[in-house]
């Protein structure tokens, strides 16, 4: 699975993307956030406030209960501020 981080979440995790073999216990976006939060302090900080975590699965906005599979691309980013 390809994981991507943007804006200040990228700065906290220290990487713009990483590969992850999807653990068997991770079934949804919410599970993935729990799992990634244990990777490093930076990851935990990036994903700490669930209200500010926006998630896209395969380029489409996703919800905490969106199911995942190993071939998905999952992106984490803060609320958008374009325009």
């Amino acid at each position: 699975m390809r994981i991507r981080y943007f804006a200040w979440m990228r700065e906290h995790t220290g990487c713009s993307e990483e590969q992850l073999a999807l653990p068997a216990a991770v079934l949804t976006v919410s599970d993935l956030i729990d799992h990634l939060s244990s990777v490093s302090d930076g990851h935990a900080l990036a994903l700490k406030n669930r209200k500010t975590v926006r998630v896209a699965v395969n380029l489409t906005f996703a919800a905490p209960d969106t199911p995942l599979c190993d071939t998905d691309e999952v992106a984490f980013f803060p609320p958008v501020t374009g325009g």
């Binding site: 609320p79 958008v80 501020t81 374009g82």
Partner: peptide, 26 residues
Amino acid sequence: IMDYLKTEAPFWKKEETTQGTRWIDA
């Protein structure tokens, strides 16, 4: 289109000011 772009298009702004840099909050 502008209203939706502001909330659903994945762009993020970072300000560089005379007092440092910061990400703009939504």
